[in-house]
Write a protein that binds this DNA or RNA. Structure first.
Lengths: 158, 158
DNA sequence: AAGAATAACTTGAACAGTCAAGTGATTGGA
DNA sequence: TCCAATCACTTGACTGTTCAAGTTATTCTT
């Protein structure tokens, strides 16, 4: 008996679903990116980083945690922090209790930037997603997203 | 009366949905990218371009159409074509009927590359999405994707 | 039948993301 | 207790994407 499994291709229904979903992935990210860049001059990722900080106690989060919350690598965050620091929107400081850790803090100027950028962002999110869906579909989308993410995590878990 | 509309923020349910959906966007694209890069040494976008060509009559598509089918700008495609041409996976040729158009054709080597890359790609798609969802959810995801994309197109339409 | 406007690309500069290597700080064995 | 392994982060080189500008071809307009 052979150990080489033959590929189980997608069914017609699955392929149909996949094609539109992939398109959704690219279109959604591209719309978010364009809106943020055009209206606020920052990337959607940078907005996300500052938004996470704005919601945190003392507007402060350890970098490695912040990287997770922002759905990106630590390296990506490190580069982004350098850019945000140049605008004085964030500050880095070493953590007292553990010398390996660095804390990121959102400055007042950074908070102001988030506050002024949020309305345009929310408008885009609403007009892109929630204006297009029924409340039932929003709930389905949440469940579907969670199902995929949880299933992915259980596979990736070492 | 003021012309400044105050922002309609997201409800708790909407925000909950949005957070997981954004995470899904990034995780899904990142998994697709990693798999294709690791197993075949090409980007997910480049695979998509060649896959579209492989399904087309005469394995040939006009560049501007190919750019649309691949969910990217013409500029992005142009740069990608240069890379793919270096491997002799695709060929460019001027269109006889309209001098502005350029046709892209998948070579035999390109077809072989797609054929050898497809199984790993399909395995990733299946394990990421369809193994995590019920058939009902797959159908819902298709409908949701279409709803968002159609609603977006109707807005964007000039 | 020109000339203007549009369309289909190409190109190069600027910039963001990834990957691999490097630096300190801390933990965990032997 | 000390040395190795691990962790948290930084940095620089490389590569891909975007944006604006340029080129050539075609289609309108009058």
């Amino acid at each position: 008996m052979s150990t080489i499994k033959q590929t189980r291709w997608l069914t017609r229904d699955e392929k149909q679903c996949w094609v539109v979903f992939v398109q959704l992935l690219t279109v959604a990210l591209s719309r978010l990116e364009s809106q943020m860049q055009a209206d606020s001059g920052i990337s959607h990722y940078e907005y996300g980083v500052m938004a996470r900080l704005s919601e945190a106690p003392r507007r402060t989060v350890v970098l490695s945690q912040l990287a997770d919350m922002s759905n990106g690598s630590l390296s990506r965050l490190s580069h982004a922090m350098r850019r945000l620091e140049r605008h004085d929107w964030v500050r880095r400081s070493p953590c007292a209790s553990d010398g390996r850790l660095t804390e990121a803090t959102l400055t007042d100027a950074g908070m102001a930037k988030v506050t002024e950028s949020a309305p345009g962002h929310v408008r885009m999110v609403r007009s892109l997603v929630f204006d297009a869906l029924t409340p039932e579909q929003s709930a389905q989308l949440r469940d579907i997203s969670l199902a995929i993410l949880n299933h992915d995590r259980s596979k990736t878990a070492d």
